[in-house]
Structure formats: structure tokens, C-alpha cells
Design a protein around this nucleic acid. Structure first.
Lengths: 203, 203
DNA sequence: CGCGGTCAGGACCATCCAGTCCATGCCGCG
DNA sequence: CGCGGCATGGACTGGATGGTCCTGACCGCG
């Protein structure tokens, strides 16, 4: 199985099943703690399928990273594409908090936890993750820019920096919540970032 | 070797060497990517010494966590014990940024990266880490409380929440910096949190 | 100075896990 | 309907890694 091959529908489905199962396991247990045998069992496939689709575990990990990044950016686009008011930002915050509350904060951010684990281990994965964060912040920055253009935000507001601040608060909040098994730090952190944006609101 | 044993000076030194070497390796490579053989080599000891001092790897990891937490809290106490002005907070920020700049943001926060890796893996370690974050935030909160008491901060400032916000910005900043290999996101995040505190300054 | 116990050294073992391989089955195309 | 190739299954292997154990050195105490 070479890269760029055209897959039959069945093959593509199997590949997707593998990536999805691996993503879930790696999210819950961590990348390094997830064995290929775990993935095999969870995806109801076999060892040779794994190696038909991925030359080695590293490539599977990269596929998982790409898949998760695409998934999250897709979801975030839903929230942020039309962002143009402070209320929209509050809704964004609420949706993230609520989603994380479902699991009591455990596991953290799917991108953030992989970033932390892979940053010192797979430079290629790290780059993709970094790029994903940039895109994610870009969605926020674009919304903030629209708010500025419409006069909701003052002219001296820097959408890029505000977006970075929001993302850092989000990621830091995820981490503290994951460690404490309590989502309140995440709420507090996001509220701080939101307050910061609010301080640039006109009138 | 049982817990609570009194060690000879030599034994204590060996134990400390092991923990220190393990801490460094786990910080740079990650906990799971660090093998006991790595630790043995880096600490110039032998396998049986490892097992003389620690029943298994998990306990070594816990010792590393405890050691790192103590180390960081000690360092932070130096910065925060006498914190009583906004300028002091800025100095705190600068010191952290400068320290992280030395390695171009790589590796992140020694506590944060272990928290992310161990949270879903060792509940005992997670609890210690959570407690350490609480203490760390406590140092910040105490300083902010002093600022409030002295009238530097308004009465409606909540030191606890401000401290949590600072910590989240710090941790999120570390993560983004580590992923991007660029400390600017960390600076931006901390500046946001500092601005937030500034918004509670009197006059 | 010698003796008991603690510490150091490193060979050794068992397990786990990434990665290989070959036999079988299914699918689409002619 | 038959054929060629792709997908599938799972047994197998080599090596890494956590953990054990035995031997010998050192240290403090009598």
C-alpha cells in the first residue's frame, strides 16, 4: 500500500475506522500508551490492515493528528465562521465549557494533549499541530476583525493578539481542568480572556 | 528497601541523582518515552539501585513529580513571596518568559507537561500535580491579596480568580510556545492576563 | 581489625509490542 | 462466470523494556 493510492470504498472505510479508533484511544490513554494491538481490537481489524494503510505507528499517529485537527477545525468553523458579536464569543465559550463538562474536564483538548505529548517527539506532527493552532486562532481573529470592522471593537484592538490570548486561556484552562478534574478553572480562564476582549468593546 | 527507611548519606545522594536524572529526561523526552535504562545511564547507577530506591517505575515517576513540584514551588516562592505591586507581577512574567526563551519554548512547563501526560494515567500523580497547581496559584493569590489589602487592587478584584487566570494563561502560553517553538504566544498570553489584573488596579 | 548489613554492579528473565509474512477470501472487470 | 489483484486475518519474530537476582564492594560499629 503506497501513499496516494486510490482505495476501494471498503478499504477507505477500514482506514477511517482505524484512524477513528486510534484517535479515541490516544485521546483517552495518550499516544504512547496506546498500542497497535489496542487499535486493532478497537477497530475490529487486523495487524496487517494497519500496515496496509500505514507504514508504521508514527504515520498512524500523524493521520490521527490530521484527522483530529480537521475535525476540530470543522467544528470550530461552525461556531466561529459567522462570529461578529461579543455574544457570539460568549456562546463559543459556553459550548466549549459544556462539551468539556460532559467528561468532567478529563482528557483535555484533543489537540492540546497531543501537542504536549508529540512536541518533543515528532517534529512533523508538531508542525501540523502548530499550524492547526494558527488556523484555529485565525478563525477567532477573523471574527474579532469583523467585530472591529463593524465598530463593535475599538480600532486599537489587535485581533491576532486577542485570538492568541483566547487560545492560550482555552488551552491553559483545559490543562488545569484536566489535572483537577474540575472544569471551573477552565471557566475562570475563559472568562478572563473574554473580559479582556470586552475591555476593547466600544461604548 | 522499604519506604521511610533512613538512608545513609551515600544512599540519599544516589537516590537524589536518580530522581534528578529521571526528571531531566522525562522533561525533555516525556515520561513514557524515558526508559529506566536511560535513567540508569544518565545517573551513573545500575538497575538494582533503581529498584533499591523505587519499587517500580511508577513510584520513580511519582518521586520525580514531587521533586519537580517542590523545585518549582521553591523557585516561585522566591518571586512571589514578597509580591505586593503590579511591577512585581511584571517581573515575575519577565523571569518566566526569559527562562523559557533560553530553550526557545521547547519542553514547556515542567509541571504542565507532566500533568498532561500523567493525568489520564496515574491518578496519584495527577492529584499531586493538581495540588501543586493550587499551591502555585496560592502564591499568586496571596500576593494579589496583599495588593488588594494595600489598596493597590480594587476591592472587587478576586485574587483567587485572577491567580487562576494567570496560571491558565501561563500554562496555555507554555503549550502554544512549545508547539510553535516560538515564545511569542506565551508573551501575548501573559500580557493578556497582566492586562486583566491591571484593569483592577486603583486609580 | 573483622563482621553484619547496606549499597553497587550488571547479567539475566519475562513480557510486551512494533513490525513481517503468508494463506485465504472477496470484489470488480472482462 | 472466471480471473487477477486487493483486502483480510492472524500467527510469528526480533528487539526493547520493565523488573529480578546474585555477587561483590564498602561502611560503620564493636
Amino acid at each position: 500500500m503506497q501513499a496516494g493510492r486510490t482505495l476501494t470504498p471498503r478499504g477507505a472505510a477500514t482506514r477511517a475506522r482505524i484512524v477513528e479508533a486510534a484517535a479515541e484511544l490516544m485521546y483517552v490513554k495518550g499516544v504512547n500508551a496506546t498500542t497497535l494491538d489496542d487499535v486493532r481490537a478497537a477497530s475490529s481489524t487486523s495487524k496487517s490492515q494497519l500496515y496496509n494503510h500505514f507504514p508504521d505507528k508514527e504515520e498512524l499517529v500523524r493521520a490521527v493528528v490530521a484527522s483530529r485537527a480537521a475535525q476540530i477545525l470543522e467544528r470550530e468553523r461552525g461556531y466561529l465562521q459567522r462570529l461578529k458579536s461579543f455574544r457570539g464569543l460568549v456562546r463559543w465559550r459556553d459550548a466549549l465549557v459544556q462539551r468539556n463538562a460532559l467528561q468532567n474536564g478529563a482528557y483535555g483538548c484533543a489537540l492540546g494533549s497531543m501537542a504536549s505529548e508529540l512536541a518533543d517527539q515528532d517534529d512533523q506532527a508538531r508542525t501540523v499541530l502548530a499550524q492547526s493552532f494558527v488556523e484555529w486562532e485565525g478563525l477567532l481573529a477573523a471574527g474579532l476583525q469583523r467585530m472591529r470592522d463593524s465598530g463593535a471593537l475599538r480600532a486599537d484592538a489587535d485581533p491576532e493578539k486577542l485570538a492568541t490570548g483566547l487560545m492560550a486561556a482555552l488551552q491553559g484552562g483545559y490543562l488545569l481542568a484536566e489535572t483537577a478534574h474540575d472544569i471551573r478553572p477552565m471557566e475562570v480562564a475563559l472568562d478572563m480572556a473574554l473580559d479582556h476582549v470586552r475591555s476593547f468593546l466600544t461604548a
